[in-house]
Amino acid sequence: MTDETPRPLRADARRNREKILSAAVRVFAEQGLDAHLEHIAKQAGVGTGTLYRNFPTREDLIEAAYRNELARLCDAAPDLLATMPPREALRAWMGRFIDYASAKFGMAEALRAVVSAGANPYARSHEMILAALTSLMDAAGDVGVIRSDISAADIFASLTGVALTSAKPEQRRQAERLLDLIMDGLSAGRT
């Protein structure tokens, strides 16, 4: 009987994988679906063999890059709560959400190609984001710094609206102002 569980990656292999995924997000956002995988490997500082060993197809790379961005966003919630007060952690996470949305929009063409090929890179995205946002809002609510009558789903919808209107890099200052407005509206004591 063989063990079907994949072995954990060595530290250098894990670093290479992360570099490839980060480069893929940047390059697909800049060049769209026509981006050359060899260019992504070069930007990551790895050989094309390393890229293809990790991601045999373009679709594998696109889906993994998107899922990596999603995981980075969601995994940030407990880290932020461990290092800053809950209100500040929530606000910092909102900024990261805009970063995630910017990457997602930049990769939109490439992600559409993955969906057309039959994959669903968005599976569980909504639930994962809501879980991270709920943990942040619960922590802030527990110490009484945000209202308790606003749901994570409402804030997610608000963040999505900010992302749709202000996720481009040149709109970042506007996005930050809009996030501050959301935080003002969440302030405890408001009705």
Score class of each variant (00 low, 15 high):
H36A: 15
E30Y: 08
W93F: 13
N68G: 08
R17C: 02
Q43C: 14
M84W: 02
D34K: 13
I40G: 04
R53A: 15
R15E: 15
P121A: 06
D79W: 00
R10A: 15
L61K: 09
V46I: 09
V46W: 10
D34M: 11
A113Q: 05
R87Y: 09
A101R: 09
Y100W: 13
E63K: 08
A113M: 07
I62C: 12
A92Y: 02
K19Q: 10
A11M: 11
L81G: 01
E109L: 05
L90D: 04
K42H: 15
D99Q: 10
L9T: 05
R10Q: 04
T48P: 01
F105C: 02
A64G: 08
E59F: 10
L111P: 04
L61R: 07
L21K: 12
N68C: 10
E109M: 03
P85K: 12
D34L: 14
Q31I: 03
R87P: 03
A41G: 10
P85Q: 13
T50V: 13
G32Q: 12
V115L: 07
A117C: 10
S102P: 01
G32M: 10
G49S: 11
T48K: 15
G118P: 07
Y122G: 02
I98D: 10
D34V: 11
L81K: 00
L61V: 11
T83H: 04
I62S: 01
L9H: 04
A113V: 02
E59T: 11
A29P: 06
A123N: 03
A123Y: 08
F105G: 02
P85F: 01
R67K: 14
R67I: 04
M107L: 14
A64H: 06
D75H: 09
A119V: 01
Q43L: 12
L37T: 09
L51A: 05
A71Y: 06
W93A: 03
K104E: 14
R112T: 09
S116G: 04
A108Q: 14
T50E: 06
T57I: 03
Q43A: 15
I20H: 01
A44L: 07
A101E: 11
H39S: 14
M94D: 06
R58D: 05
